[in-house]
Structures are given as C-alpha cells and as structure tokens.
Design a protein around this nucleic acid. Sequence first.
DNA 1: TATAATGCCTGAAACGTTTAAGTAGATCAA
DNA 2: TTGATCTACTTAAACGTTTCAGGCATTATA
Lengths: 340, 340
Amino acid sequence: MPITIRDIARNLNLSIAAVSRALDGYPDISKETRQRVITAAREMGYVPNRAARQLRRQKSDAIGYILSSDTPRFASPFTSEFLSGLGDETALHPFDLLVSIAPPGADAEQAIYRTWVQSRKVDGFILDQVRTQDWRIRFLTEQSIPFVGLEHSKDGIDYPRVEVDNTASMAGLVAHLAESGFQRIAFIGGPDQLVISDERLAGYRQGLADRHMAYDPDLVQVSDQTSAGAYEAAKRLCCLPNPPDAIMCVNDETAFGVIHALHDLGLLVGKDVAVTGFDGVTTSAHSDPPLTTLDIPVYEVARKLVNMLAADLEHRSLPERRIVFTPGLLKRRSSGDSPS
Amino acid sequence: MPITIRDIARNLNLSIAAVSRALDGYPDISKETRQRVITAAREMGYVPNRAARQLRRQKSDAIGYILSSDTPRFASPFTSEFLSGLGDETALHPFDLLVSIAPPGADAEQAIYRTWVQSRKVDGFILDQVRTQDWRIRFLTEQSIPFVGLEHSKDGIDYPRVEVDNTASMAGLVAHLAESGFQRIAFIGGPDQLVISDERLAGYRQGLADRHMAYDPDLVQVSDQTSAGAYEAAKRLCCLPNPPDAIMCVNDETAFGVIHALHDLGLLVGKDVAVTGFDGVTTSAHSDPPLTTLDIPVYEVARKLVNMLAADLEHRSLPERRIVFTPGLLKRRSSGDSPS
DNA sequence: TATAATGCCTGAAACGTTTAAGTAGATCAA
DNA sequence: TTGATCTACTTAAACGTTTCAGGCATTATA
C-alpha cells in the first residue's frame, strides 16, 4: 500500500489539509511544521497519487501527441527524431507525454481527439502534419484546449507554432540543381491537404519560375510520404516519354524510396538522376549515396514545441508565439556533389 | 464542461449508480434501461473521466516504458522501431503508453521507477536493455507490479519475456565471416552489465572456438552502443600493431559508427575490413555499404511484449511466458557479399 | 478593555467514478 | 396470508487529493 498524505498526517498529528498545504508551500503553514512534513514525507517515501490530484485539480499534467494517419509510420526517421525531441523535453518539465496513433479515417481521428479532451487525459496537444484546413485546430480552439503546432494552418487562427521557411528554401534547392546542370526537374509531393505539401510545391514552382524553367504538370506526382509510395511514383516518372533528370521530394523518406527505385532501374543516383529530400533526418547522411536535403533541426523543433506548450500550460507568457526556422541546404552526392 | 455520469442520470431520472452499472454491463440493470443509458451516453457525448475511474479502481490503464540511460538515444533506429511496435500494439488494447527517459545514474533510474509505481502512474512496465543483474526486475517483482522484458536477467526470477538466441546466432556469424576469408575478427560490445553484451560476446567466443580460431583479448572492445562511441573503438582497433580484418558489433548502431571510422581511415568496408551489426534495423539496408547483420524483428518483438503484458494485466492467462526469436542472417556488402 | 488583525491550523466538501449494502415492489411457494 | 426470492433499482461510502470557509490563540490597535 502506497503512503498517502493521511499517513503523514496521522504520524505528525496534523490534519491532512495542513500536510497538503505544507507540501504545496502555502504561506499559512509555519516554517517549522513545513520542515517536519517535508522530512516525514521523504522518509516515508510519499509520492502523491496522480489520479486523486488530477481529479481534484481537473488537470492531468500530461501533454498529448497523436500521430496522424497521414504520417507514414511511427518508425519513420522524421517521426522518431520528432518523438525523441518531445520525449527529451517533456522529461525536463513536470509533464508526462502521452503518445498514440490515430486510426486511419477522419472520423476515427476526431474520435480520439474528442476522447482525450473529454476524459481530460491530457492538458494540451502537440500537432504536426498540420493541414491547410485543419479541423483539429478549430476544435481545440473552440474547446479552449492549449496546443502548439508544427506549421501554420490556413484557418485564420493564430496559435503558438514553429514554422519552416518551406517556399524559399525549396526555390533555393531548385537553383542548386539547375546550377549543377540538371534540366528537367520533377517533384514528388505528399497528401495535398498538408501545409508542407502545399508550400514545398509552391517553392518548387517558384524556383522554376525564378530560373525561367518551364513548369510541366506531368513532372509533379502526389505520393504519401512513404518510401513505398515514392518508389511507385518514381517509377511512374521514369516511364514518361521525356523523363526527368532530377527528382525533388517533399521529405527524406520519399527520397529514400526514389533512390531505391532508381537503383532498381539501373540509374546512377546523383549522375543520371539527381534526388533531393527535405528534413535532413540523420539517416540521410548514411544513405547510398548520401542525400542532398534541406535540413530542419527536427529534434530542436520538437523541443521548442514542448517548451512553448509547457509555458502556455504553466501560464508563463511565451517569449515568442511564432518561431521560423530556415532550413540549411545540405549538398551531398545524390545531387551530384562529390563526397566531401 | 465535459459530460459526467451524473448528467446522464439526471436526464434519465436514474441514480448515478444505475448509469454506471448500465454502462459497465452489470446484469442487475434491465435490458431496456441499459439501452436508454447507452444511447443517452452516446448522444450526450459522454466520456468517462479517467482520473476518477483510476482513483476509484486503483489502476491507471496505462503501461510504462522508461528508456534506460544505457540506451543511446530516444532516436536510435532500434529504439524507434521498438517504440513503434509498443505504440502500435498498445493502441489495440485499452491501455495508454507512457514513455519517459531515465536520467543517467542508477539512483535517478530507481527514483523514476519508484515514483511511477507509487503514484500508480502505470499498471505495468515494459523493460528492455535488461542487465544480467537487474534491480528493476527484483524491485517490480517485490512490489508485485506486472512487467515483461526483452531478454532474461540472471536474477533467477521467472518473468514473461522475449528472448533472442544471441549466442548461437553470433557464432554463426563468425562462421560466415571466416568462410568469406576474414581471419582476424574483432568484437565491439556494449556495457557489460547488459544481457545482450554478455551473450553476444559469448557467441563471438564460441564462434571462434568452433573454427579453432584464437581468441585475442586485444580484439575485444567495450563501447556504449552509440555510433560515436563505436567510432572511437574502431579507431583503437585499427591502431593495433596487428589490426583486425573484420569487426563484429553488438548492434547496428555500433556498426554504423565503425563504418564511419573505416571510411575516414580510407579503408574499404566489406573488402579491407568486414563489418557486421546486430538487430537488422531497417536503416541497415540503406547504409553505405549495406550492413550484414542479424535480423531481429524488433517491431514484432515489441508488439509481442505489449501483448504479453496486456494479457497479464487483463488476467488472461498467457499462451507463452517465454518466446525465443532466432535472428536471421542478412548477408550484405559490409561483409564482402556482392550486391544482390 | 474591547476589537481587529494576524498566524497557524482544522473540518468538511468536492472532484467523478465504482461498488457494497440496502430496499421497494413483484412473484411465488406453502 | 406470510415469508422467501427475485428483479431492478437507490443510497451512501470510498478512492486521495485540494481548497474554501472557518476557528482558536496570540498579538496589535484604538
């Protein structure tokens, strides 16, 4: 039987209220009593019962992250780096991290968010894979549940968030490919509700325009951010009468699938066809060949998000409600650069 | 304000007890009443308050996984595949998954397990990175907290677990290297309290003995399962007066560090020096060159563990208290095999 | 000296469930 | 008719906290 506050009270001949207040540091308990309580608590190995505290305080001291079904898999390098940041940072705050997966289907996703909100399982949410129109953002705003997001939806709601400068950096990457001599540049995007798909595609188009290169709709494929999906998309591109000599991808995972497909087609990646990713996951440095990509510090981004949410939940004012990261261009062999 | 059982009771002119029992399916509620309750609950969007339920039932419906500080990082491929399995499988059960990280130091680790147990944060634990003498296993057994583990400690306690046939498979891998013509085989292990370090080293030694190859203690390095640590260990090995022509690693992460070091030393991996890993994480297929490794279905293993724990917590009897996986040998270019 | 203020503590209610124990009313056996 | 047995509920206590509203000394103020 775990020790309760009542045991301490009995031992010290105090009321449970006094013990509770002493532990919480209320000023109407004498210094001396507080000391006695604190040492007794430690000696007896007291740990507050979470459920009781939650029930009374009406909060859970937990933050939630629900993997969207748009996210390929729990195990994708992006997700794992992201989770890693979330986990490491939450550990530094008095919060728990609750992770789950939304079953596929919009209804199922709504159900799980609703349940978590209603059952007060968590006090706030971390959102990623934000969509241009995102019901989650409207829902949580309505319910006044704190949340932070990676990327900004177009719902016209201002929430604490981290953004990546997708458009400009993609345009820059187009320029890099063009300078390396690649002429016919394709793009494989993700599900098109996603903000990143939208913005990265926009950057691709802007990059082409900047260099006065023609935009060919045949060269734009929609995929699902998985390497399996990308494998198929790449094959479709290579079957075109006039196939591309460069394939830009919405994320690294997609790029890995493309590289795989090109290998299978006997094409030399970085020479016959350039490939680029987006995210700069650590494994991108170890692919064969190493992947040219736009590096976002995923781990840091995740930590920042937790930080923002924690500040919000603790009613500290946020230093910045909006943080913009500009990805760094990592030129590697997949776009023809010689090994460093 | 979320809907409570009390709101339903008021609406239907029933006692809260009746509503509670109706929802829980007790037989002393008439079919008809139960139906009314259930539909009302659905219509009103009732979701039970977890904290209240936990407090009353004295359980949390959550299972815990605390990353050991022996684990390199949240973001290692092994961990992420493992987490992925845990997450996917818990989602299929009426449990939450609570993940945290033990701060370094044995005391800090004890503190977090104690806190989780005492505060009843979770009903059971998943343990990995099991050590030959593992206080966690003794502690949880003492406290009668259910848990399952990956690998079996030598504490003489019988608990539900998944084991990998480390020794035999490592011995087999030695044979494969020897057959490929590698003569001087080194081994980089992990922290030596770990069961896997122990058993994989034993397998290495047995493999040498099987082929009547000499065991040279200089060729055995202890590292920390990270690629950074392995990088250093590999350099130490290569500086020996009589350096190895093959390096076997306790896990894939270690192998990645070794490959990196060999690249930097200008050695050709798979030709000058063979490298092998252990785990068969998905990224091992995409390293440069692809890694020869012993494949454990990490994802499946994690799911099995959750399954076992869930069965235990739900008082279903376990079909098997001990599951042994035999890793498959993936021969790839890092040990000299030509690309398939 | 009466009254107010202060310091330090207690009692009791509340959070939303679950569950043991109790109770009307109907049914049934003798 | 009496009492036993069911059925279908209700009452109330409990889980371990937090917190509101006092309350009793002691000290300060008028």
